[in-house]
Simulated scan of single mutants.
Amino acid sequence: MTLTAPAAAHEAAHARELTRAELLRTEVPGPESRRLHAERLEHVPQGVSWALPVYIESGSGAILTDVDGNRFVDLGSGIGVTTVGHADPAVVAAASAQLAKLTHTLYTVTPYRGYAELAAKLAERTPGDHAKKTMFVNSGAEAVENAVKIARKHTGRRAVAVLDHAFHGRTMLTMAMNHKAAPYGTGFGPFAGDVHRVPNSYPYRDGLDGAEAAARTIAYLERRIGVGELAAVIAEPIQGEGGFIVPAEGYLPALQRWASANGVVFVADEIQSGLARTGRWFASEHFGLVPDLVLTAKGIAGGLPLAGVTGRAEIMDAALPGGLGGT
């Protein structure tokens, strides 16, 4: 990815700063971070956990500066959100210009310019050259839930299949779709029904090639669920929860071919793997995969809350007017 001139100058200035600045000015965590952490423990529930009790004041590029003046390389990127870096000049300029004009109106009541423009860009970037449409929501979990709604409406079927080791979110429906029960689902049940987990391709562990792994998954889909009941198969092209799992070559295309032949909507959850995080715009491209629906979030808006469902126009149009949306 080539940096724009302002972004390149931003990165170069930032690199020069690092060579002369002292990275750590206090112990870690410092006194102000400790004070803020005590405040957090008093006012924020423990379920909103923390990895490091260091409180951030600002960010520039890949570097975070905490409230005590200590600097850190941000290897987390907000869990794959700030992929173009913190305070990127182009992102700041675009957000500032929009805030000066309009902060919010409901697109389904009084629409505005940017929605359809971004939908057109996603139609261009997502895999496949078929006609596509996009709806936008606030978070990745919302995108997953809307994909399920759309697939069920389009097919008239109820069941949803997800892969072992999947992570799709923390809402009521997506909790039922996750592989891990703890901590994401512990004590939060009962969970949504008609969600079925099936084996994925995990060549490091199972030793199966793509065709063999696909045959195993398809056998589960046909015998444990039944094609006539299955609305959608939802897969992360590269899984990222508890390790990164890359499927065997040929696995995902074989699964997609089976889904297409049986009227099942194939959904690629690219919320974590998309937007150039794997070296291409979408991880699906590494496998020659053209999903029916593609889900985006995290890196799509440089840290601002935005997510989307992009898919085949005839599938996206299944919902009646008013059936999709949100503030």
Rank of each mutant, 00 (worst) to 15 (best):
S260L: 08
L275P: 02
A254Y: 06
I245Y: 12
I245M: 05
T174H: 07
G189A: 11
G243P: 10
G228K: 14
Y202Q: 10
V198Y: 01
P199N: 03
R223Y: 08
T171S: 15
A161L: 10
Q272E: 00
E222F: 11
V267S: 06
Q256V: 05
L275E: 04
P253G: 01
L255K: 02
D164I: 09
R170Y: 15
P237W: 06
D164Q: 15
V233I: 15
A219M: 05
A268K: 04
R224D: 15
Y251C: 01
A268P: 01
E249I: 08
Y204W: 08
A254W: 01
R197I: 12
P183I: 00
A259N: 04
A214I: 11
G242I: 00
L230K: 00
G226F: 08
L230P: 01
F244H: 06
W258Y: 12
I225M: 13
L163T: 05
E212S: 13
Y220N: 07
V267M: 10
A219Q: 13
R224Q: 13
L163I: 12
P237C: 06
I271P: 04
V198M: 09
Q272I: 13
L163S: 11
E249R: 12
A268V: 05
G250A: 03
A181K: 15
Q272H: 13
A159Y: 08
A211W: 05
Y220V: 06
A159W: 04
N262W: 07
R216G: 02
F191P: 01
V162L: 07
A182L: 11
G242W: 01
A213L: 01
I234Q: 07
A181F: 15
L275C: 13
Y184I: 14
Q272C: 10
N262D: 05
R170E: 10
V267R: 03
G189Q: 08
G226R: 11
F266A: 08
L163V: 12
V233K: 03
G243E: 02
Y220C: 09
L208E: 10
L252S: 01
V227K: 14
A176G: 15
A215V: 08
E241V: 09
V265K: 04
V227W: 06
A259S: 14
I238S: 07
P247I: 03
I218W: 07
Y184W: 15
R257C: 03
P237V: 13
Y184P: 00
P253E: 00
W258L: 01
